[in-house]
Structure formats: C-alpha cells, structure tokens
C-alpha cells in the first residue's frame, strides 16, 4: 500500500523542501520507491537540492496540469544523486520556475481532480511506496486538497510566535480532514534551547508527536542549502533526527 505524505508549513522559509528532500533520500536509501511532487507551484525550487536545473526537464508538473502530458512523463529518476547503491528509486516531479507559467497557474488555476487522479496514476505507474508532496505554505485550496489526499502530514515549524499559531490552524484543519497520521518537525531551533524541552512543550501543546527537532546553526544552513544534508553528513545528529522520523513513516 502506497502512502501519500504532505510536507507543509504555515509560513515560507521554514525548511519544508529540505525536510521533503532529506526524508525522501533516506527512504530511498532504505530500499523504498519514492516520488517527490513539487506542488509549491507558486515558488518551486526543490530540484536545486538534486543538482537539477529547469533546462534538464522536458515536461513539468505544469504541463501535466495543462493536459500536455501524463504525470509519469514529468517524473525524473534522480536516484543517481544518492551516494550509495540502492534497490529503491527516487523520482522528482518538478514545477516550472518560469514567471509566466507561475502567473498563468495563479490566474487560471487548475483542475484539482486531475491532480488527485494523476497522483494515483503515477503511484501505480512507478510502483511507488511513498509519494511526498512538497506543498505551498499557507492553507490555500491546493494545500487543502493535498491534506485530503494524504495519509501522513508532516508540519514543519520554527519555534517562533507566528509559526505556533499558524501550525495550530494547520493541525486543526488536518484533524477536521481526518488525516490519519500527523507529525511535527521543529526546524531551526536556537541552539541555546534544549531539544528535549522543546520537544516536550511542542508535543504537549499540539498533542501530536514531534518527528524531529533540527537545531539551527550556520554550518547546517550552509551545508543544507546546496544538496542533500543526510547524504553528505550521514553521522550528523541532524541526520539521525531525520532518520528516526523516516522510520516512523
């Protein structure tokens, strides 16, 4: 049985794409077949973490939504970026970074049923174990659809005032939609706070499990922005955090 996982955050810049890419990499190295959908159509960018440029892609998620191709044609095998050989496979379904394409999606919208049908079909075509959706921040209609489709929701938050309330809203909406599994990932935790304390307080406040607490440091920022952190730093405490979350998915 395949699982659809939405990775969401109420605000941008919380490390949603990084969390998506690193979890996908760990699941693939564990022998799973994983697909990533860059559903952050308004501000895409996860392909950068796989050292891809838009010119590398013939079809994009936008083409599928405009009925120019099948979703499987917009899925690219990026398993080779992983450092070790694996029985798993990793596919990336990127969105267009072209400003005109983004404007068109924003103006015209797209057929959401086509998106949900496409997910089911690509899961079957590529025999995926996991389809991970990197969603757009906030709670617009596409995001609500992602939540409705998902078996698991991962909400990434930073330990700050604005994220607490936004995360609260997301979590309540996800509960309304009866998402079976919800995990929280606390990202960019100030290193002066204790991990155990933050984990306990967040779990208590939302009555939800915290999947990972990722501390903030300049080193991590530099390393994490250019490629897959868990591949480059397999023994790092941050990698252990991601790995423990991946094992619970």
């Amino acid at each position: 049985m395949a699982k659809i996982i939405s990775v969401h955050s109420f605000r941008g810049g919380t490390g949603k794409s990084n969390t998506t890419a690193n979890l996908a990499a760990l699941l693939t190295m564990d022998g799973r077949r994983v697909g990533i959908v860059d559903a952050d159509i308004q501000s895409p960018g996860i392909h950068v973490l796989f050292q891809k440029r838009e010119g590398d892609f013939k079809f994009l998620l936008n083409d599928f939504l405009w009925d120019r191709c099948e979703l499987v044609q917009a899925a690219y095998d990026v398993t080779s970026v992983l450092p070790e050989k694996t029985n798993g496979a990793l596919y990336l379904m990127p969105s267009s970074v072209n400003a005109a394409d983004i404007a068109r999606i924003l103006n015209e919208g797209y057929d959401m049923n086509r998106l949900s049908d496409g997910f089911r079909k690509v899961i079957a075509d590529l025999r995926l174990d996991y389809l991970i959706i990197d969603t757009h921040p906030g709670l617009n209609e596409e995001t609500l659809l992602s939540l409705a489709l998902s078996n698991i929701l991962i909400v990434v938050l930073r330990p700050d005032y604005q994220d607490y309330e936004g995360t609260g809203i997301t979590v309540e909406v996800a509960r309304e939609l009866e998402v079976p599994g919800i995990f929280l990932v606390v990202n960019k935790m100030p290193s002066s706070l204790s991990e155990a304390d933050v984990r306990a307080r967040v779990e208590e406040a939302y009555r939800l499990p915290v999947g990972a607490v990722i501390p903030h440091s300049d080193d991590i920022m530099v390393l994490a922005s250019r490629d897959l952190f868990v591949c480059r730093n397999p023994d790092h405490p941050v990698t252990r955090q991601y790995r423990s979350l991946a094992s619970r998915l």
Partner: peptide, 27 residues
C-alpha cells in the same frame, strides 16, 4: 518564546481562522 507556546495556540484568533476555512464551501 518557549513559554509563549501555551498562550498563543489557545487564542481565539486561531479558532476564528480555523472556522473560516472549515466553513468554506470548498472545504
């Protein structure tokens, strides 16, 4: 900041926002 965790997520504003989304036709 960590102490605010308790205060902020129980706020009335959050309930208002949730009911706005949950009350929409689309939802």
């Amino acid at each position: 900041e960590v102490r605010q965790l308790h205060i902020e997520i129980d706020s009335a504003h959050q309930k208002q926002e949730v009911s706005k989304i949950v009350g929409s036709d689309y939802f």
